[in-house]
């Protein structure tokens, strides 16, 4: 083997295992899923857009889309706002690092583990009995009526969203903490000398500087939310109008012996929702490479 030939071959030897696995586990399946979404439940016969038109008339699908939209709006927004508040507050307090660690900790917990934790918080006993769930105990202590929170349509979605917010706010805190620390001090001083108060400094100086970080956090959360599955399957399995696309997809994979057509269609819908973020990530990456 000539030396020049080897030099050409060598990079591919380094890359081969990774490329092989990426093709087998992500690229080929993704393309195949897209194709299967136009086939019947066994993946045998081409049915055109029938799976998609079925979805448009399926109440469960429409419900899932509505719920996913609610998740998409509320979960990232709540986490980002809270993340900001904590990052700003913690930087001013000596035990701020400890506080951040504790808020960050749920990120290490599984969605199912978190679901057990919160199901216990939301536990409901009939009125007059001792409430053993923290939320109902608080409500009763304040003179309210105990409720079975996760069975109240619409609102139960928010109780599930709280679990995700609880888990991912730590990420926002870490990102914003680092970003805020990265704002040049001279800029802040200059604004203060010009007579800006802290709120003005925040809106006029800090916010524009960390805008990029906010977008990164937002897109990360958006992708996470679209894939949310564990919380729903563990808390309600889609009952009481809480279904989401990812859980519905999982159900159709196995329901009635498994409907690969509908399952693939649902996966494709999730993929389409992620697509803009994927393209944006590539663009951002290219810009950064050019800058390098």
């Amino acid at each position: 083997m000539s030396r020049r030939f080897f030099a050409k071959l060598e990079p591919w030897l380094f890359l081969a295992p990774a490329l092989f696995l990426l093709v087998v586990y992500l690229i080929y399946p993704a393309i195949h899923t897209f194709i299967l979404s136009f086939f019947d439940k066994f993946g045998m016969h081409f049915v055109g857009l029938r799976n998609y038109t079925w979805a448009l008339h399926d109440p469960e699908f429409l419900q899932s889309i509505r719920n996913n939209l609610l998740w998409l709006i509320v979960a990232p927004l709540a986490s980002i706002v809270l993340g900001f508040v904590v990052a700003a507050l913690a930087d001013n307090v000596r035990w701020g690092t400890l506080a951040k660690s504790l808020i960050f900790m749920p990120m290490a917990i599984s969605f199912v583990g978190a679901s057990v934790i919160w199901k216990f918080v939301y536990d409901f006993r009939a009125e007059g009995q001792n409430q053993i769930g923290v939320l109902n105990a608080l409500v009763v202590a304040l003179g309210g009526e105990p409720r079975a929170w996760i069975t109240i349509p619409f609102w139960n979605n928010l109780f599930l969203i709280i679990i995700l917010v609880w888990m991912q706010t730590g990420f926002a805190v870490v990102m914003f903490s680092a970003a805020i620390r990265g704002v040049p001090d001279e800029l802040l001083e200059a604004a203060r000398i010009d007579g800006a108060n802290e709120v003005q400094v925040f809106i006029r100086v800090v916010l524009p500087q960390i805008w990029g970080t906010i977008l990164v956090v937002w897109t990360t959360f958006t992708v996470d939310v679209l894939k949310v599955f564990d919380i729903v399957i563990a808390m309600t399995n889609g009952q009481w109008d809480t279904n989401v696309l990812a859980n519905m997809m999982y159900n159709w994979m196995f329901r009635g012996g498994g409907d690969f057509g509908r399952g693939s269609m649902l996966a494709t819908v999730i993929m389409i929702a992620v697509l803009p973020i994927m393209l944006w990530n590539i663009r951002r990456f290219r810009a950064e490479e050019d800058y390098r």
């Binding site: 890359l15 990426l22 080929y28 299967l36 993946g43 894939k227 994979m253 399952g263 992620v274 990530n281």
Partner: peptide, 24 residues
């Protein structure tokens, strides 16, 4: 180009891979 593909694959939902892999 290959690296762009890697960047793109980071956000591909797992759901997109499950059914063909199950069959495979």
């Amino acid at each position: 180009f290959l690296f762009y593909i890697v960047v793109a694959l980071i956000v591909v939902p797992l759901q997109m891979a499950l059914i063909p892999l199950l069959r495979l």
